[in-house]
């Protein structure tokens, strides 16, 4: 399992704007750098990041080789209902990481 750090409030008031932060350990190898043997190190990046709130997509991001290692994403969402916020990162070499947090909306 990938090393993930997600920070989202555990509770929120209905209609409140909440900040969600997601950090993941990943090399984000660009595919442009030569290794010690002089050959190009193959590209190995996270291509897609999505967040869903009770299954409904609230955030999607396409990542490129220009994004630094261990990408940190922060975004805002309107707290509509209690439930689960699920995060999914996918990328090269079959990389998939998933994480969820629960939030109570009152």
């Amino acid at each position: 399992m990938a090393n993930v750090l997600v920070n989202a409030p555990k509770t929120a008031k209905k209609g409140e704007i909440v900040e969600i932060k997601a950090l993941i350990m990943h090399v984000m190898e660009t595919g442009y750098r030569p290794g010690t043997n002089g050959r190009i190190i193959p590209r190995n990046i996270i291509g897609d990041f999505t967040a869903t709130w009770n299954g409904r997509e609230i955030f999607r991001m396409k990542m490129s080789p220009a994004i630094a290692a261990n990408p940190f994403v922060s975004f805002a969402a309107i707290a509509s209902e209690s439930g689960t916020i699920a995060f999914r990162w996918s990328g090269d070499e079959g990389f998939v990481a998933e994480h969820q947090v629960s939030i109570t909306v009152t």
């Binding site: 090393n3 750090l5 997600v6 920070n7 932060k21 950090l23 350990m25 261990n70 940190f72």
Partner: peptide, 14 residues
């Protein structure tokens, strides 16, 4: 200062 943004915290978790 923000433990949710400091990438070193990934290593701390490991």
């Amino acid at each position: 200062d923000d433990d949710a943004a400091n990438p070193a915290m990934l290593f701390v978790q490991a």
